[in-house]
Amino acid sequence: MNGAAFFLGVNFIIAICFGVVFAVVSTRSRSRTAALWFAAGFTVASLSAVCELLVAYTSLTKFWAIGAFASVLGGMILLRVGVGELYGRRVAPVWTCCFLLASIVLDLLIYDLPRGTAAHAFSYQTPFALVLLTSALAVFSSTRRLTIDRALGCLLLATGLHFFAKASLAVIAGAGTTARDYIGTNYALISQSSTAVLVVAVGLTLLSVLVLEIMADERSNSEKDALSGLANRRGFENGVKAAMALAPKAGHAVIICDLDHFKRINDTYGHHGGDLVIQAFGDLLRTSAAKNAVVGRIGGEEFAIFLPNTTLDMATLFAQALRGGTMGITVSALPSSFAVTASFGVAELAPGDDLGGAMREADTALYEAKRSGRNRVKQARQIGFPQPTSIKAGK
């Protein structure tokens, strides 16, 4: 076995492995369709290595040579479809099929041309280059702007241009007189080794994009409260840290709110009724808060809102609006006479203040609102921060 045949075997194993990995990743990825296209693309492209070996060691030279061309191009087209799915730049199935058929016809037409000539080399390599260059364009023109996305676009661009470089090398170094001669040339060794490197690079980068998506989804799920759809305590605290990092010298405000008499709601209407109330209240908070606000459910019926670049008085006005909105909540599964109320505590964070301290102040203000009769808004600076004692059981 010569060097080129060795790299053909390596390319086959690499492509098959990537096909399997992408199929597995598709079971967890939000971009499942794209991952399956990638799996199909690498699997189909792997057949080219088999065809190339059959070209050299069987009598059906032309058949297997066309098969090698078609399998590589078909695999790349499937990758292009997957890139389009992933980056929102889909391609029409009719055009992809027409392009594949036209390229195979072109390969048939140039098959008997002298190998190593510019006409044959560039006609053979151009379809591959076009597919990868349009894939790079799909990445660059998408709205995704992460570093890994830019890296993938650059890699696809370099891989597409590399096919033109291969055509030039075939003219300069020679690619054999016939298709059967190809595997024994130095050009084949260089071509297959460079392709192996680029296949691995593209495969790993595509895999990285999907894995990063899975990690982001897992993190989002671990920081989200399933019932209300808001952030849980961990997600709320992380969200606040990120928001404060964007404006470290600004003043902020925190609101802690608690549904009144929630135990009575559960006792009267069951836990399903209580869940519906939590969902409705969560929807109110989410739709009422500004886009840069951080909203979370931090306890059973307790919620928190972080308002960046907001004064205490502005936050208090917002809490009053939420109090009024809460009284207007209707839950279709509960009686029309049913009314929801909530109490609110508001505190401020001066530049450099600790979130935990502000949360404690807002919580103390919330308990004061409860003591005062519930369905109220209290500012932390209006009270002397008494220790909360007896309200917990009667929320």
Rank of each mutant, 00 (worst) to 15 (best):
T205W: 07
G251N: 06
A5T: 14
G273D: 04
S123Q: 04
A119L: 15
A231Q: 10
W64F: 15
A121K: 07
K392P: 01
G74I: 04
A23C: 10
N11Q: 09
A170T: 10
N186A: 11
L317V: 13
C17R: 03
L349T: 11
R286V: 05
A290M: 07
F6W: 10
F344C: 08
L132N: 06
V81L: 12
N238E: 15
V24E: 11
S103G: 06
S135E: 02
C17H: 09
L307P: 00
G41W: 01
I172E: 09
R32V: 05
A158V: 14
A121R: 07
T287G: 04
F6Q: 04
G300R: 06
T195W: 12
V24Y: 11
T96R: 07
L307C: 15
A40M: 13
R30E: 14
H120F: 15
D267V: 08
Q387L: 12
R381M: 10
E301G: 05
G394H: 13
F99W: 09
T185S: 11
L137S: 09
Y124K: 05
C98Q: 07
V340R: 05
F99G: 00
E301A: 04
G300N: 09
S191F: 12
V105Y: 09
L206C: 12
F303N: 02
G82Y: 01
I265N: 00
V21A: 14
I391Y: 06
T178S: 15
R297G: 04
A321S: 15
E223M: 14
K291Y: 10
W37M: 12
T134A: 06
C257T: 15
R374S: 06
R360F: 06
E52G: 08
V20Y: 11
G160F: 03
T58G: 03
L312A: 12
V277F: 10
F281I: 07
H252C: 08
L157K: 00
G299Y: 03
G160S: 00
P93C: 02
N186H: 12
S332W: 02
L106S: 07
T27C: 10
G324Y: 01
T27A: 13
L227K: 09
I383K: 05
S142H: 08
H120W: 09
L157G: 06
R144I: 13
L36M: 14
L130D: 01
G153N: 05
A243R: 06
S48I: 05
A339I: 12
L207K: 03
C17P: 00
V55F: 01
A35V: 01
L106F: 08
F140C: 05
L169N: 04
L36F: 01
P114Y: 05
V91N: 04
V209Y: 09
G345K: 03
T268V: 07
S193R: 03
R376I: 02
Q192D: 10
A56V: 10
A250M: 11
F6V: 12
L317D: 14
I16V: 15
L334D: 08
A358Q: 02
F262A: 00
C257Q: 08
A188L: 04
I278V: 15
T143G: 15
R90N: 11
F22S: 08
K241Q: 13
A65M: 08
R360I: 13
A70N: 03
F69M: 06
S142M: 07
A289M: 09
N11M: 09
G357M: 11
F122W: 13
N2P: 09
Y87I: 08
I172K: 07
E301M: 03
R180C: 01
L8R: 07
P308E: 02
L276D: 12
S168I: 10
M327G: 04
G282N: 09
L206M: 15
K166Q: 14
